[in-house]
Design a protein around this nucleic acid. Structure first.
Lengths: 399, 399
DNA sequence: GCTTAGAGTTCACTAGTTGGACATAGACGG
DNA sequence: CCGTCTATGTCCAACTAGTGAACTCTAAGC
């Protein structure tokens, strides 16, 4: 940090290199680490010793049938990260470790009309419960990722107006939760976190550029560009829901007309089925009915798919991602919605961009956002919060 | 290269750090270099000596009224880069040095129907002429950036179908020119290079995320994301021209209907004025007439602006860049086209994304692409081609 | 049981950065 | 005109950290 371009920074970079290699592979022998990182065996030997002394890494004496290879893996309790996700109807919390393992995960219903304070109370309680349940050491918590269903102002960390959680507008979720838990909290909106979750654990593994489309009450997209969430300079990238599809279409809550949202989001689509299917229908219900064969619901879902496909085609022309992952309740409809999306993309996107695009349903369902929050916490600490700790214990002398 | 994470890589990184600092500032004293890079004065002293011995840098004995500060600057002939741009009607070549200075620049008309071989002949000649004119040492040429007005297949480097330069399809421009000049050549399409040019020398200075919209025969965009050109995994990012604005609009050459191009590109717009203004009108002519007050041309240009604005609004919702730079002939229309664009963006983009967006005309006009090609050559050699050279002379022992 | 080969460690060596001491030279005050 | 002051650049000794080579260790294979 203080000495950019010095040997110590090089050393730190090498530490992280080793940690990353180990994490990606799960466990490696030192020789393998040397090969994958390009470092020499001697250096790896030193680094592994340092990490072991610092508690970041565990060396299991000899595992497999090799000669005498000691396998190195991240010690499960070296660092704990927590993901918290405020959804439209529930609150989810997950606890994970540095090795990208999810140790515990729980969700509970959240009253939409609850105040922000109540929400944070509940979150705090649930986090504490899971910490107790997993028996992890509180001091090992390196960071918390927090998902909120609304726009976050990048600079101030203030939550913008949310139709989903009215009354939360103007709060600073990261500060709030950070104050309660006493650890750094990093916020992002649900679409970005969903993208991150699917990228790390779900349908986006192995891809560097993807768009995660979340269709729920609104329509949003989380963009992953070159392996990192792209928020844009103003922090509002990914607003695919307000792409204009039809200049003279229905009026949208954003003030424009014919936004994608007005053709795809729950709040605009559900009313279409009210007269035929009753008023207390949810998106989930529509999807279930569609899967059971209800023609009206099938039609509605296909139409939604076609419109989303138009939006995705635009996105595809502009960004040319290699994968689009569909999340939210709608993803449960599977081919009923994916088919029309693909068809629409094929029609409206330029062929060279559409050709190598794959449109997949999210693999994580409603868990995408919490897991993304976990991943955010992991990435925000950049692997170095912990390394700092192990460094200071290992080399107390530091000018 | 061969030793990632070793001291020599650290040293190389520090060399580049110093070079970058010097280039950004024009010239610096060693003490200033030490401060801006964070390196110690001793290290800077060593590095400067090494760079001076390698010829990358020049030390002018003592320039200003300070105590005894020797100012360090990049030596003008340390490295030469060349930019070549094949445009719709002309060929441009520029010669620049490591210090981001343009030493010479020239353009000549290019016959649209010329064969690819003829084109490369001309380019080779013009490059040679400029090299001779500037008197630079051929061996100092570090790289060439090449712009072509059509899609380049990322993997093979093959030029896709171009309506602008028919008969060039299937050629491999980088290979072709590289073979003739004997130096590495890096290709990209005109929109991306325009973006890079404006980013480095024009209206995009100081910004990390911008979109350069080039309106000419077609409509394309070059995207700069986090300071780097974004091409997308398939290399076709930025195809803003084929965003669908009206599903039942005019049929586009891409096979879809109502693409932005059909409302904005020269090939679709000029015919509108044929009956009233004659058939041999060019976009340039329309712009000139509009500036002179011709109401028909004004109207057409305003309409084009409005449609471009719709496309930019979509782009803005998705990517939220901080700046949009308009290039191509159309940019010459100034407020006549920018006004309607801004208006359209204001109407169709979500307010939070539109608020901090600035829409500017390109500052480089038709030079944007060549200069971008220069910048491409500079960035592709990553400042290290030259440093490699000075390194090998400075430290011949290398395992 | 011997050989073999890969794994990990130790050690001497080298590359490279740093802090501090030092020489230098203009600016400023007397 | 001269001494002092201060910031610059250089040199040197110290220290950090990575590397190759030699070495040890262990299990597999014959």
């Amino acid at each position: 940090m203080e000495t950019p371009g010095s040997q110590s920074s090089l050393h730190r970079a090498n530490l992280e290199r080793v940690v990353r290699a180990v994490r990606l592979a799960g466990s490696l022998t030192q020789a393998e680490i040397a090969r994958t990182t390009g470092l020499s065996a001697a250096t790896v030997s030193n680094i592994v010793r340092e990490l072991k002394d610092g508690g970041t890494v565990e060396v299991t004496p000899t595992s497999a049938g090799g000669r005498r290879a000691r396998s190195v893996s991240l010690s499960g309790d070296a660092g704990i990260v927590i993901g918290v996700d405020f959804g439209h109807t529930h609150l989810r919390v997950a606890v994970g470790n540095l090795a990208h393992q999810v140790l515990a995960e729980e969700s509970e219903p959240l009253d939409v009309d609850a105040s922000a304070a109540q929400g944070f109370d509940r979150a705090e309680q649930l986090v504490n419960r899971l910490i107790a349940a997993t028996g992890v050491d509180r001091t090992k918590i390196a960071g918390v990722g927090l998902g909120v269903p609304g726009p976050i102002d990048v600079e101030s960390g203030t939550l913008g107006s949310t139709a989903i959680l009215p009354g939360w507008t103007g709060t600073k979720p990261a500060e709030e939760l950070g104050g309660r838990l006493g650890v750094p909290v990093h916020v992002d909106n649900d679409a970005n976190l969903g993208a991150l979750g699917e990228l790390v654990w779900g349908s986006g593994r192995g891809v560097r550029d993807l768009a995660y489309i979340k269709v729920a009450s609104g329509v949003g997209a989380g963009l992953v560009i070159s392996g990192k969430i792209y928020r844009g300079p103003g922090g509002t990238a990914g607003e695919i829901g307000h792409i204009t599809l039809d200049e003279s279409g229905p009026v949208c809550r954003c003030g424009n007309r014919g936004c994608l949202e007005t053709f795809a989001a729950a709040r605009y689509v559900l009313p279409l089925l009210q007269s035929s299917h009753g008023t207390d229908l949810t998106m989930e219900g529509v999807v279930r009915l569609a899967r059971d064969g209800d023609p009206g619901c099938r039609r509605v879902i296909a139409d939604v798919g076609r419109h989303i496909g138009s939006g995705v085609a635009n996105l595809c022309n502009l960004l040319n991602p290699s994968r689009v992952v569909l999340g939210g309740d709608l993803a449960e409809a599977g081919e009923l919605v994916l088919g029309p999306i693909r068809e629409s993309v094929g029609r409206y996107a330029i062929p060279s961009a559409a050709r190598q695009l794959s449109v997949l349903p999210g693999a994580l369902g409603g868990r995408a956002e919490v897991l993304g929050a976990l991943a955010l916490a992991l990435s925000e600490m950049g692997d170095s919060t912990l390394l700092d700790g192990s460094l200071t214990t290992a080399t107390p002398a530091f000018t």
